[in-house]
Design a protein around this nucleic acid. Structure first.
Lengths: 218, 218, 218, 218
DNA sequence: AATGAATGAGAATTCATTCAT
DNA sequence: TATGAATGAATTCTCATTCAT
């Protein structure tokens, strides 16, 4: 059984990646429970039994997907924290763009995360999400403390609430973009242009909000 | 057949409400596909066949739940729009509190909505959500136009983006509140107090944000 | 329970007849097992429970239908047997027309009989069919003996085989009439005309056949 | 998925044949709707899920059975049509025997066909029956035209009516054979002998009838 | 290392019937 | 006498997983 070796710094072969990326699309589209392993096998053009063979179970496939997709933000964050040449607000703005970039470029995964977060908070997946969240929040808190120390940011910043706005707004846009496109008469532009448009709008919008949250005294 | 009379102004009997409210809890906890009708029947202490008997199918039960829970905001909104004694900003602040109130007091239903919005945008449920969203957005747009005409609000307000922040932030808080409670050392207070705390925090936070979005020229 | 009085010379009230005639149409269309009592109740515009109330069970409803429809041929046959003014061949031809008339005018019931005959030969319905068949066969055998005694008919007539041709041909025409209409380019005439056409054709056809069977010495 | 390869010239593996032949017996005995897939699985000694696995659904199992059993007559007919050494009447007599042989040797399937023909004329099964019927009728019509051209057969032969007698008589005998055996005092002979007896009787009977239909002028 | 065949468990739904009123 | 509400049993079908090869 090749299942054992998948831990910590796990690496996946082509077949496994192919399966995970297909599963990602289907999970995003129909939900975890709404997707059968047969659906995944068919769409990924692999043998049905291969999914159990490589991942052990459907549940573990989801966990693998989380470990495969979840490493992204951390790296970006860590590399930035120590940088002395940037102001704390610059860093925060960069961070906002990183979050937007992650959510927008991994829309399928974002949808899955949103769904999984909503349901009951037990199981390995929930733990993975929790860990990810916690780690990110710690780094951001560090960044904010830094800004507070430098006098750039005001005191009494409720980090989780602030993050709820960042993540909540971006995720909400991802899940309601078809509606946004309708309302704002953006049906004629290409999808690529539309994605760019949303990113820009989100970026301006959230930066403006964050500026108020982080600096406005009153 | 008791199925027929469920249209427009639909009224539900005690058994039906009992089933819907049980389903709501379970759907929120385990997702629609993760909940079996047997789960619902068991928890609601009704016969398994009664669910099909009263609602026709699991899908239609969800739809019934939407029609049962979805009428709330509209009424609140409509009654406020015409009020001449309030400033537009007052109305908007009232609206924010209404949204928070709805999302916080119907947390299970909010979770279900979030999940359903994430998956594929077809089917009766999706249509119901779409209609609800559209109706609300139209009323809010009206309110904003009113404020713009009076000079209270600035031009160029992106309503869907603004709503994404309102709804996205509140929903994100609902789904991550256990985490919030941990981080902010609020484990000792009662749940009731905690809920009150969140509401207050959310209210302040979103009102502050909205003030900037709606008035700040820059 | 009003079930008791339904035996022997049973009489049915309007509601019961309404139910039986609706059931007859549906049984013919979708088969006994393919028709639910709910289907019947809906189509007959009666309360669902009324069917059990009046007939005891779905099975007994079918039996009632058989007793309601099955009395027809016997009477016709009996009244003819003793008639001394007709030749045996005349009687046989009249009999053929009676059978055709019965099968053609009660097509739904004929279909049901065909279906029920095909399945396993146990149960009250099977017994009813068997009784009916036996009685008819006895009368016909009497008629044939009469003809043989008079020298009109030849010896060695296999009555069941002969009846198989009479009943089998007519039933086959009933169940494949849509096909017959296609093949013979009779799509433009009215249904009434078409039914008349089939009856006439069947009558000529079977009389010709019977003449050979009954008289040709070979 | 083993479902895909079942098209046109379809071949079935042992398990599939085992299932189909068991289903055939049960469908003949209790009707399609009267037989549950569980019945079939139990009697065929296969896993319940295997039936869906191999055939997709109960309905498709019936269709498979039709495709498995329905190819028989066509081949016999086609190989005979062109034969120049036989008279048209010889061919017709051979045809009669072929039909009798098919119906008598595949009694279960014949019963199923009779039942399915009786109910509503929609769905794949109905289409399969229709196609089969049409094809056979066309070949027989060809044969009759040949006989008419040669002066062997009279004009104005109603083919569907003639076929109704052939098929209707044989099917009626199949479904009422237990009754026939009773009446004609054939209870002491073995089943094998009885079957042979019926075939012979049917053959003589139908050939005699066909001779009249096809040649007798008046 | 990879897979076709198979399966036990459980899914949603329908059904004929019952029963209190 | 008639019926709305209710239900236990059975239905077909799908599912994730296993296992021999």
């Amino acid at each position: 059984m090749p299942l054992i070796f998948k831990h910590a710094g796990m690496e996946y072969n082509d077949k496994q990646i192919q399966i995970m990326e297909t599963a990602e699309i289907l999970f995003a589209e129909k939900g975890f429970n709404g997707t059968s392993v047969r659906d995944i096998a068919d769409k990924a053009n692999v043998n049905l039994a291969m999914i159990s063979y490589y991942f052990g179970s459907k549940e573990k496939l989801l966990e693998a997907l989380f470990s495969y997709r979840g490493e992204y933000i951390k790296l970006k964050l860590e590399s930035m924290i120590g940088n002395k040449e940037l102001s704390s607000m610059d860093k925060m703005n960069t961070l906002i763009d990183h979050y937007i970039d992650k959510i927008m470029s991994q829309q399928c995964f974002s949808r899955i995360m949103v769904r999984e977060q909503v349901v009951n908070h037990t199981g390995t997946t929930a733990e993975l999400i929790f860990e990810m969240k916690k780690r990110n929040q710690e780094l951001i808190t560090k960044l904010i403390h830094e800004g507070q120390k430098k006098g750039e940011f005001r005191k009494n910043i409720d980090v989780p609430l602030m993050m709820a706005t960042l993540v909540g707004t971006a995720n909400n846009m991802v899940t309601t973009q078809h509606y946004y496109r309708n309302i704002n008469h953006l049906l004629s532009i290409t999808d690529e242009e539309f994605q760019k448009h949303i990113r820009k709008k989100l970026s301006q919008h959230l930066k403006k909000i964050f500026k108020v949250i982080l600096t406005n005294e009153e």
